[in-house]
């Protein structure tokens, strides 16, 4: 579990993370989104016990990041943005080295490495030189490294950025399996569809501050307002607008299609359908238009009109 309160980190000239409060429960995946330079990497580094915050604190896997940093590092698996493998090492040596640093016995190291390589479908000889690995292989090996010690908390920076779609799905499946086993996972990513597909909750930060947090549906509601519906007719209809009066707000329209936002779709949609049909309209389709997470994200990080932090919004 991750519980951060008021995390703040200043560098010489900038405040990278500013009073950040986050909570990721056991068996939960949180996607941390934000533009470049928003403070995602600094947040990850602080939670991993690599950087010390200037203010605030956090408990990660039950350990305090200020006073129990060694324990935090032992309990956390970190996938850094740059994989930074040692090119003059062989695959087996590399995993054995990191396993040893985490205190695993040689037998445990071999078994764990084999299991993870197989789970991530990285079928390579343990004598293979890392310098000869492709980008995707390096990324998967870096993930194996992060998982070698069966961490209770995973902090992943762009875990699928260099992977082909099939490999990315393998990684996502593995992360879901780990979540099911109770692992707490925080993923920093720019891949919004992946965030939506994988994460239980999404947090958006900008200039080091948390500006939105919740499930994808909650964020849509909070950022973009009530759901938008699209009504399509078989042919043009003059009287269509009058059918919506008092029930919905028109967002967009063409002669045979109209998009509207209804505060209470449960009661508004049947009434709208009844009125349209009364007026002779032939309905082809009525459907909810789900806004993409990208719209939510862009709205959230927009300079002007950005919503207040999640705490205040609630």
């Amino acid at each position: 579990m991750i519980e951060a309160h008021g995390l703040t980190k200043h560098y010489e000239r900038v405040t990278a993370v500013d009073d950040l409060t986050l909570r990721v429960g056991r068996g939960e995946i949180l996607a941390l989104l934000g533009p470049n330079g928003a403070g995602k990497t600094t947040t990850t580094r602080m939670l991993a016990g690599i950087l010390r915050p200037n203010a605030g604190g956090a408990r990660v896997a039950g350990f305090d990041i200020l006073t129990e940093t060694e324990m935090v590092r032992a309990a956390v698996g970190v996938l850094t943005e740059q994989h930074g493998l040692y090119s003059r090492m062989r695959c087996g040596e590399y995993l054995d080295f990191f396993g040893a640093l985490y205190g695993l016995t040689p037998v445990q190291r071999r078994a764990r490495a084999q299991n993870l390589l197989s789970a991530l479908k990285l079928e390579v000889d343990s004598d293979a030189w890392l310098a000869e690995f492709s980008k995707g292989m390096r990324q998967r090996l870096a993930l194996v490294r992060a998982l070698m010690h069966s961490p209770g908390v995973l902090l992943l920076d762009e875990p699928t950025s260099a992977l082909d779609p099939e490999s990315a799905r393998v990684v996502r499946d593995l992360l879901r399996a780990m979540r099911a086993e109770g692992c707490t996972i925080m993923v920093c990513t720019h891949n919004l569809s992946e965030a939506e597909e994988l994460a239980d909750r999404i947090a958006i930060i900008r200039r080091g501050r948390l500006i939105a947090e919740g499930t994808a549906a909650e964020l849509r509601m909070r950022m973009l307002g009530p759901a938008v519906f699209e009504l399509r007719l078989a042919r043009e209809h003059e009287d269509l607008l009058t059918a919506l009066e008092g029930l919905a707000e028109v967002v967009d329209r063409t002669p045979a299609r109209i998009r509207y936002r209804a505060a209470d779709p449960g009661s508004a949609n049947p009434e709208i359908l009844r009125r349209v049909m009364e007026r002779g309209g032939k309905v082809v389709e009525l459907r909810e238009v789900t806004p993409t997470l990208e719209s939510v994200y862009l709205q959230a990080v927009a300079e002007e009109g950005a919503p207040p932090p999640a705490g205040e919004a609630k």
Partner: peptide, 17 residues
Amino acid sequence: GEKERYSLEPLLATPLS
């Protein structure tokens, strides 16, 4: 050198004091 090759951060993330 490790910092330039980006291999330092994974090392710093280990429990090594």
